[in-house]
Structure formats: C-alpha cells, structure tokens
Simulated scan of single mutants.
Amino acid sequence: MQILVTRKVDEEYLQPFYQRGWQVEMWHEADHPMPRTQLLESIRHADGLFTNLADPLDQEIIAAGKKLKVISTMAVGFDNIHIPTAIQMGIPVGYTPGVLTEATADLTFALLMATARRIVEGAEVVREKRWPGWGPFYLTGQPVYGRTIGIIGMGRIGEAVARRARGFQMPILYHNRKRRVELEHELGAMYVGLEELLSRSDYVVLLAPATKETYHLMGRDQFKLMKKSAIFINVSRGQNVDEMALYEALAQHEIWAAGLDVYQEEPLPADHPFRQLPNLLMLPHIGSAEIDTREAMVKITVENICRGLVGEPLLYTANPQVYER
C-alpha cells in the first residue's frame, strides 16, 4: 500500500502506516500546498490519501487516483472534495468531526471579544510606541456581557459557543435548519428567522456549513438588517459571505466591526480590500489550531486511512453511500 500525505506532519504520527509495511510519500512543506501538477501525478500511485481543507480535490484530481481506496481529510468540513466522484468510484471519504468543537468555540468567542474590545489594536499601539496615554474614550469598544448574540448554525460548534455566551449572561438567538428544542430549554436559546436574528443581535456569529444553500448567505441585504453597533463574526467558511458586501458594510459603517477567521480565497490575496479596513480583525484560519486538537485530528485521519485500506468502515465517513453500493 502507498499513502500520499499532502502536508508535512511529524513522522511519529505516521507510525501506524510504517508498522504495517506501507509506503508513504509526503509533501515536504507544512504551510504550503502541494502543487496541482505534482498532486495529479502522485495521486496516480496512491492507495490512500491524507489530505486537508486547503487541497482542492476536484473531479479531475480524484478521477486520477485510479488505485485510491480511501481519502481522509484532517478537517471537519469536506466541501473542497468532489464527493460525487468519490461515490462514483466507491472511495470512502473520512473527516474529523467533534474533536475540534471546543477549540473552535474557544477561538470563536476569543475573536468576538477581541473584536468588541479592540484587543489587537490596543496591543499594537503599545508595541509600536504609539500609546498617547489614558483618555476618556480612547480605544473604547462594545460591551459583551449581557448583550444579545445571534448564532447562525446551531451544530456542535454553535452549541458550544452558546454555552460560553450563557456564562456572559447573553440572550441567545439562533437560526438553524432544524430547531434544537432541547437547547432552548437548557440554555434559554430562542429560535428565530434569519431576518429577526440579524435585526435584534448585537453579535452575529456565522457557524453554518458550506452548502449551495449557504453560499453568500450573508450579503448586502443581510448586513443592512444589522444594527449599526453590531459586530459580525465568521468562523465557518468564507464562501458563506459576500465579501464585497461585507467590505461595503464596514467601510460605510453600516455595522460597527467584524472578525474573520475564514475567507473565500486563502491565504488572503495581498491586494484584498479587507486589508484597508481598520474595523476588521482578521485571523489566518486557526479555528482548530490548538495542539491537543490538531494531534487528535491527525490520529483520526490516520485511523480512517488504516481502516479504509483494509476494507473496514471509517471512524467518520462523509459519504456513507459508498457502503450501500
């Protein structure tokens, strides 16, 4: 068996492969993707593929993997993988849900608070020796405690964010494909339509998956519904937001600020207009970037591949239809 690993990881995590006598081809960069031409060539020889959310596995690339028996991504999302082709070829696709819930919820709430209280701006002022001294309204931000949070997408991460918000005595509104009645009773959350959520919330947190239905879910009309004092947070997928609409909303002060961890194109292009906005806090897609979490994600990805190569069901399968074939 030969496994292709598209990002460099410590060899110790790959020991389950070596113990079985399997061969590993691993890209030598940890922070930069394998070039498409090399990926197309290498995948032709691979029985298993260890991938991640930054690899666009379209129809052409997956179809080139004639020997592929399993694909597993080190991510909770798999919208970068052309699932219909994998199903057609009978290739199970593994992913890593659940394990990154708390880490991503921590980052979401940290981004919310940092944006609200202008934490990064303050740190930069001190570091760059631009601190003029105390002033009555110097670097004032928005209150968090007791303010209303609106969560779009009440899945595992949305629920974890809601639990953190409850500790800050924040009224919780949510919009989801399905009502979560048990959470309404437990956390006092209120299910509302999207328009009502946007108009009533002081913090709008987007945690919806990337689907055809959620593409540009947040656009001009949606941002116009928000309060001028409101803050928008996105830790879901960049495709869920019309970025030019968000740029205009921030530039024209239709909303107070925004905090982002994800973008339509990653890494963010050098000439992207977002870089001009002083009221936008941007992070480099680090939602699950916690040591324990990333280690757990690697181990699940490896286990998924080991199971797939010996014909066993994966721990987590994005396309269970392959088992029905």
Rank of each mutant, 00 (worst) to 15 (best):
V5G: 03
V9T: 07
E11G: 05
E11Q: 14
Y13M: 01
F17N: 05
Q19A: 15
W22S: 06
V24G: 10
E25S: 13
D31V: 01
D31F: 12
H32E: 11
L39M: 13
E41I: 00
S42N: 00
A46H: 01
F50M: 09
A54R: 13
D58M: 06
D58L: 06
Q59L: 11
K67P: 09
K67T: 08
L68M: 10
K69V: 04
T73F: 01
T73Y: 02
T73E: 01
G77V: 05
F78R: 05
D79N: 15
N80G: 00
H82Y: 15
I87T: 15
Q88L: 12
G94Q: 01
G98I: 04
L100S: 14
L100D: 08
T101H: 10
E102D: 15
L107C: 12
T108C: 15
A114G: 12
A116G: 08
A116D: 07
I119E: 00
E121T: 11
E124C: 02
V125M: 14
R127I: 04
R130V: 00
G135R: 09
G141M: 06
Q142M: 15
P143A: 02
Y145I: 10
G150D: 08
I157Y: 06
G158E: 02
G158W: 02
E159M: 06
V161S: 06
A162T: 11
A162H: 12
R166P: 02
G167W: 02
F168N: 08
M170C: 12
P171H: 09
E182F: 11
L183F: 13
E184Q: 13
E184D: 11
E184T: 03
E186P: 10
A189E: 00
L194R: 13
E195D: 15
V204T: 12
L206C: 14
L206Y: 08
L206M: 12
L207Y: 08
L207S: 10
T211L: 13
E213Y: 03
E213A: 14
M218S: 09
Q222G: 05
K228W: 04
A230P: 07
A230H: 06
I231E: 07
I233L: 06
N234Y: 07
R237D: 01
N240S: 13
V241D: 00
Y247V: 12
Y247L: 01
E248H: 09
Q252C: 01
H253T: 11
H253G: 04
H253V: 00
A257V: 04
A258E: 03
G259T: 01
L260P: 02
Y263E: 07
E266H: 09
P267Y: 03
P269H: 10
P269M: 03
A270Q: 14
A270N: 11
H272G: 10
H272V: 11
Q276S: 12
Q276I: 00
N279A: 03
M282V: 08
L283W: 11
E295V: 02
A296N: 11
T301Y: 02
N304V: 03
R307A: 05
G308Y: 05
V310M: 14
L315Y: 02
Q321W: 00
Y323C: 00
E324N: 10
E324T: 13
